[in-house]
């Protein structure tokens, strides 16, 4: 007996999910951050963020098709984290690091928060 392990399966599927997002296919929620709107798939959001997991596992909220985030959340920071969810690549720009980290704290993305902490420490002379 043997088993074939397709080593790039996870990244191939994620790439396709990102293509679906970019073409707005089967996206089922709009995230409002200040005045900016981001379309996404609830399943991807809740797989990556503790906050979205809590929201979409709540039977009263799981059918919402729009979610407004705290107005203090930075839309640029959110955009970077949303791209990370769909690509596994986190663009850590020095000018946006605090916005990214604070948004990651708000979204309960603990591993990203740890990574931001390490990035800040390593950049600190």
């Amino acid at each position: 007996d043997s088993c074939i392990q397709f080593t790039r399966h996870a990244s191939d599927v994620l790439l396709n999910l990102n293509r679906l997002r970019s073409r707005d296919i089967l996206t089922d929620v709009t995230i409002l951050v200040n005045r900016q709107q981001f379309r996404a798939h609830k399943t991807v959001l809740m797989a990556c963020s503790g906050l979205f997991y809590t929201i979409f596992t709540d039977s009263h909220k799981c059918n919402l098709n729009a979610i407004s985030l705290d107005p203090k959340v930075d839309p640029e920071g959110f955009a970077i984290l949303l791209d990370f969810m769909y690509t596994s690549r986190l663009a850590l720009k020095e000018s946006l690091i605090m916005a990214i980290m604070n948004t990651a704290i708000y979204l309960q993305m603990d591993h990203v928060v740890d990574t931001c902490h390490r990035f800040i420490k390593s950049s600190d002379p």
């Binding site: 043997s2 088993c3 392990q5 790039r8 293509r19 970019s22």
Partner: peptide, 20 residues
């Protein structure tokens, strides 16, 4: 999969959805 030999396949695993 204990005791089962695993063969690694490094090629694409699913079709590629076009970007637009």
């Amino acid at each position: 999969y204990e005791g089962v030999s695993t063969i690694k396949e490094t090629g694409r695993s699913v079709h590629e959805i076009p970007s637009d």
